[in-house]
Structures are given as C-alpha cells and as structure tokens.
C-alpha cells in the first residue's frame, strides 16, 4: 500500500473494510449526476462496509446501500 503509483479499480471490487478515493464516475448521465448529488463524487473518500449486491458504502459517516450494474462504473484510487 505504500506505493506512490496510483492504483485505480472499480469500487465494487473493494473488500469489506477497504477504502479509496473516487477518481471517476462514468455511465448514464442521469445516474452519474444522482450519485454526485448524493455525495459520491470525485475526490471523496469512500469505504466499503459490506460487499455484495447491493453493497453498503460509507462516505463521511453517511451510509448508502447501492447495487451496481452495467450502467455506471465508479473508479477509486486505493494507493493511499
């Protein structure tokens, strides 16, 4: 985890307890905007609380349940 090279991977691949910083959200514009408004936007730190479908995420103490599908990809940087 000490490497300085940024490692990005899709959010749903995080294991329970891991966290990362959102670098990019891609997909259907409506859903992307909704996620951003709800707090999942580039630059925030997101924790994976419970994996699965739906999974539980946490941002700034606020928990969300979310089911990922093909319409959106969230890339997170896990290098820090």
């Amino acid at each position: 985890m000490s490497s300085v090279v940024s490692q990005t991977l899709p959010l749903e691949l995080l294991a329970a307890g891991e966290h990362g910083i959102v670098v990019e959200i891609d997909g259907s514009p409506e859903l992307v905007v909704r996620l951003e408004e709800m707090g999942l936007h580039s630059g925030v730190q997101v924790y994976m609380v419970q994996t699965g479908s739906p999974c539980i995420l946490e941002i700034n103490h606020q928990r969300y349940s979310m089911r990922f599908d093909d319409s959106v990809t969230v890339l997170v940087d896990v290098s820090q």
Partner: peptide, 11 residues
C-alpha cells in the same frame, strides 16, 4: 430492465 438502486441508510 431492473433499475439501479441507491438509497441512504440513516443512522
């Protein structure tokens, strides 16, 4: 399609 699902979980 089954729509995506995002929902806030309050404390």
């Amino acid at each position: 399609e089954t729509p995506p699902f995002v929902m806030e979980l309050p404390s």
